[in-house]
């Protein structure tokens, strides 16, 4: 077993632990914190079912963002949908046998890789070109985009420039899942790609990426418009 394999195996276990524990802690915190008043923003549905539908539109289509700014919506939606497809494509490294749907998504996943980087480039471009967005951008906003672009580009490079031994990569990943470590190929591109992914996983819960679970807990979006019909009381506000 090479030292490299051991280092990367430990890296992934650690990154996964931070991601899972960190997100679980955040979600628990959001769930525990009370929402004492009904504050849904119009157009708010009157029923729980309507809320579920609104949340679905928000998460799947970025409805509010679409109404706000078409460019940001275009780049943002493109990036997120492409990322989803890329993640689905990558599932083949973690399951054996590969599910039919994952196999089906393979060709789309390749194009999605380009769409993802293009979307990120668009979002990043706005941070330089639009004065208002430049004003609100922090170092971490730029670095987060740099990280995602680097992950995308290194991934595409392995597909088109210097192919790596993906059979061995899959064996390594399955080995991690089964606690039966297998050697990791020492390709520079692969090592960079994996290290950046581990970094992304580790910073996820401590960064603005918590917007992913956060949106589900947003009271302006997840509350039903029924304050007159249903009395809403949070524990600390009673009495």
């Amino acid at each position: 077993m090479s030292a490299l394999t051991v280092v990367y195996a430990c890296l992934f276990y650690a990154a996964t632990a931070v991601l899972v524990a960190g997100l679980a802690a955040k979600i628990a915190l959001y769930a525990r914190t009370p929402a004492p008043l009904k504050i849904p923003t119009t157009p708010a549905p009157a029923s729980r079912g309507g809320v579920a539908l609104r949340m679905f539109r928000e998460v799947a289509l970025f409805e509010s963002l679409f109404r706000a700014n078409k460019w940001t919506w275009l780049f943002g939606w493109m990036f997120h949908v492409a990322l989803l497809l890329v993640l689905v494509r990558h599932l083949r490294y973690f399951i054996e046998p590969v599910w039919g749907l994952v196999a089906l998504a393979q060709p789309a996943g390749v194009y999605a890789g380009f769409a993802m980087v293009a979307g990120l480039a668009g979002l990043w471009g706005r941070r330089f070109l639009v004065e208002r967005i430049r004003y609100i951008s922090t170092w971490s906003d730029h670095l987060m985009l740099a990280l995602l672009v680097a992950i995308g580009v290194s991934g595409l490079a392995m597909k088109y420039l210097a192919r790596t031994d993906i059979v061995a990569v899959k064996a390594f990943m399955l080995g991690l899942l089964r606690f039966d470590w297998q050697p990791l190929p020492a390709d520079p591109l692969l090592l960079v790609h994996l290290a950046l992914v581990a970094l992304l996983m580790a910073v996820f819960p401590a960064s603005k990426l918590v917007h992913a679970p956060g949106v589900f807990f947003s009271p302006t979006r997840n509350q039903a418009d029924d304050p007159r019909e249903r009395r809403h009381v949070a524990a600390w506000a009673e009495g």
């Binding site: 959001y30 929402a35 004492p36 700014n69 639009v130 951008s137 917007h211 302006t220």
Partner: peptide
Amino acid sequence: KYRSLRVFLDACVHCGACTD
């Protein structure tokens, strides 16, 4: 005390949708 405050302070990604 306020989930709104907690979530809103965490979730912003500086996308700029609100800027105008």
